[in-house]
Amino acid sequence: MSNKKVLLEVRNLEVNFKKAGQVVSAVAGLNFDIYEGETLGLVGESGCGKSTTGRALMRIVEPTNGTIVLDGKELTSMKGRELRQERTKMQMIFQDPISSLNPRRRVKDIVAEPLDCWGSAEGDERDRIVFDLLNRVGIDPAIYGNRYARQFSGGQCQRISIARSLAMRPKMLICDEMVSALDVSIQAQILNLLEDLKEEYGLTLLFIAHDLAVVKNVSDRVAVMYLGKMCEIGPSDLMYDAPAHPYTKFLLSAALEANPDSIQDNEVLSGEPPSPLNPPSGCRFRTRCPFATELCASQEPLLTEVTPGHSVACHYPLTTVKA
């Protein structure tokens, strides 16, 4: 892993929200790197802070603490024009395809918006870039360029969103549940398109989703979050075969496979995640973990490497039991 160049370095990222006088710790100290050209999948259940993490990286949500270094530049201390400029290297695609596009603007203007903001291309050059981008994502610009965004269906809107996000030639793309609102057949089209564009444009991806199968399909490495903390991070194939964190194991066994012969694990995780207003002491998963001991309540497990490139935050990682 050391020979790869780190594109995004996240250290001690924290995001706190104030809610009715109380502090909700949505993201509680995340450390991870994303290497150039890879796809890191980020999974977890709702409320685990995965979307907030993505938004904090883009600084649409202000991080309470921590540093974000993108391509050698520290983002958290930036302000104003510098931040706006630097942030174009990283783009984000949102979950709701319809709401991502201004219903009152024309498709070609939406895709050209980043170019217009920066005046980076004008006239014929601008039109050519927009034409190419729309063509590339499968929306015929000659026919549909002048249409309003509100006339398109979810899958098409997501294609247009992708085209827009590529206009400034970003290095990195953050995909926040970008296919979860789409039908299976459309979802597959978008996932394949994303894989192709990643190659063509040399993109690095952070792919945030709750669907484990979708995440595995696109990711080189996967990180699992629970209640604002990272449980486990490692190569996706390895981690799906031999999860080290009990939570990852339960998540995987709860995932439904479209195969009547798939092993239906009866070990379903009981209970629900506790409130982030009042997280449990020590390991945040301990209240639902069948293996929890007193140590788990008193001491917070730190993310430690079990095998090269595979780290887990658990006092009793499962791989050691297996070995």
Partner: peptide, 24 residues
Amino acid sequence: DYVLAAKIQGATDRRIMTKELLPN
């Protein structure tokens, strides 16, 4: 989300207000 999208593309507040919000 289109307001956020405009923001991360580097649109200024003024641009967001006139181009994204005003028409709506």
